[in-house]
Design a protein around this nucleic acid. Structure first.
Lengths: 201, 201
DNA sequence: CCGGTATGATACCGATCGGTATCATAGCAC
DNA sequence: GTGCTATGATACCGATCGGTATCATACCGG
């Protein structure tokens, strides 16, 4: 059996959890390659040896981080979707409101997955398939909602919306919260409407 | 006086140029932090010392690379624009065709500026203002064209198109040429049309 | 009390990082 | 020729990289 906190508040989390959380924070804020394992360990009040007792390598820690990000992402997504059951059009809308909220946070620095894809160029890095799977799933889920919304060309609309999502995240990095990123929701709305209205007649 | 090649073909370029070109290639393909100065020098058939005779630091070399990228980018842009004088609508169209061609190249790995923005998190890095200036200018030029095209809300349309551009570049990295990136041109067309047509009546 | 499990501390490994100092040489202008 | 400029070669610097080995200790369930 693992740890049962016993008393609730003052309990110190496991070294593994502290290291993982610190790594997640530093990787996202400073970048993967910019953060060394020693820095992570120190930030977690542990040591490099402590890190390597819980994770086989830095590369695997990175992959672990992104797997966790993927899980949390879809938890949020499903929770959002469950608020508008049987209404894919509203789910689409809610997804973009969620995204808009995220890119409006001055702390935010884009999408962890996409940023990792930029930094990691080795094709055999364990994080690469995590990233690709995540983004492929996002594309597919968008397509589902576009089908459900009755779009004329649902896969095409899904791709358009996908581009907006990715663009908003990177635009938040380069031009900040006052930049184009803050207009991502109305952009999605335009695109959706254009794809729902009959073409001309 | 500087180098006059004299005979045309077999001439070896200056060490500075070889180093610069090699750095540009490696930074783009492998990432900035993933490439050391020694690797650059070796790839240019020079030495680390040769690199530091032409560039004050790696950070400055990076900034120099992005400045050069900025210049070439706007040269291409202006050349494209000059093919449709007095027709901003067609210029917009041409810009997205140019982008579509770029993201269709399997060699491409997104936007050098945006990728650099992801990798460089130090706020005082000399490359950061290059990136920000470049992207702000892109946003402004798009807005000009949207005004000229008679959009109802030109700045808003410009931001929407900006998001598509950034999104296509990053989507090309994560999901490749067969991913959503290849549909960026029709996405732009939808957005433009939606902003040009009267709202409903 | 005993024995595992988790953890910290420290020292170490070879490799690479960005950056510099020094010496030699090749070409070109005068 | 004499210089000056550009370049290569090599050795070095302290710092950090990812990763490991070893020792000690603290806790916790039997």
């Amino acid at each position: 059996m693992a740890k049962k906190p016993g008393k609730s508040s003052g309990e110190r989390a496991s070294a593994r959890k502290r290291i993982f959380d610190t790594a997640a924070d530093l990787f996202y804020r400073k970048g993967i390659r910019a953060v060394g394992v020693e820095t992570i360990a120190a930030g977690a009040d542990s040591t490099k040896m402590g890190l390597y007792r819980s994770f086989p390598s830095k590369d695997e820690l990175v992959a672990e981080w992104l797997r966790d990000h993927d899980i949390r992402f879809w938890q949020q997504w499903d929770q959002m979707a469950s608020r508008y059951p049987e209404d894919p059009r509203r789910q689409l809308n809610a997804a973009f409101r969620l995204l808009a909220k995220h890119v409006a946070d001055p702390q935010a620095r884009g999408c962890a997955m996409a940023n990792a894809a930029v930094e990691i160029t080795e094709k055999d890095h364990p994080a690469r398939k995590v990233i690709e799977t995540h983004k492929a799933k996002l594309r597919a889920r968008l397509a589902e909602l576009c089908v459900g919304s009755g779009a004329r060309q649902p896969q095409l609309l899904a791709d358009h919306l996908f581009l907006l999502m990715e663009g908003a995240q990177v635009a938040a990095i380069t031009l900040g919260v006052r930049g184009p990123a803050r207009n991502v929701a109305p952009a999605a709305e335009s695109l959706i409407e254009a794809h729902l209205s009959r073409r001309r007649d």
